[in-house]
């Protein structure tokens, strides 16, 4: 194999093939004696250690502060969401049971005007309708 690799290089890269191959990096003493036991230890570490590590990480001040902020923001959001849901639920439940007067009390007049613009022609039509259809209009008017 060595010869095969040397022959492969000697023509196309003569300078490269002339360099002696050797281990250039120093490795700490006894590194390879200790590595197998280091790996075995890591393999044998109980899985609960992961949870322990996570918990000990969470107990660090910077993580604890972050967690508190997240919890506060989260609970505020949840509270507002719950409140908004309740408001809609109240309106939905009660609208059906309200009579016309109660309903009109609830309506915002300004808002209503912006939705339904004033229409003088419509008012005149209503008055005409009442005159034509009610015989004793004065009675009704007096009793309003």
């Amino acid at each position: 194999m060595k010869d095969e690799i040397y022959n492969e290089l000697k023509d196309k890269a003569p300078l490269l093939s002339s360099i002696e191959k050797k281990h250039l990096f120093d490795i700490p003493e006894n590194y390879f004696d200790q590595l197998p036991s280091t790996i075995q230890q890591k393999i044998k570490q109980p899985k609960t250690n992961i949870i322990k590590t996570l918990l000990s990480g969470l107990l660090k001040p910077q993580f604890a502060v972050g967690l508190i902020v997240i919890l506060l923001v989260g609970s505020l959001y949840m509270f507002n969401q719950h409140k908004a849901d309740n408001q809609y639920a109240f309106v939905a439940v009660n609208v059906d049971s309200l009579n016309v007067n109660e309903l009109s009390d609830l309506l915002d007049t300004d808002q209503l005007e912006s939705i339904v613009p004033a229409d003088n022609n419509a008012d005149a039509e209503t008055i005409n309708y009442l005159i034509e259809n009610y015989n004793d209009l004065s009675y009704d008017i007096n009793n309003i």
Partner: peptide, 24 residues
């Protein structure tokens, strides 16, 4: 058996990796 596998190949694997990342 796995301990023997590590002992057999640790040097080759470490050297291969070290050549790629340089740092011990």
């Amino acid at each position: 058996a796995f301990n023997l596998i590590v002992r057999k190949y640790q040097q080759k694997i470490y050297t291969h990796v070290r050549r790629l990342v340089a740092d011990h």
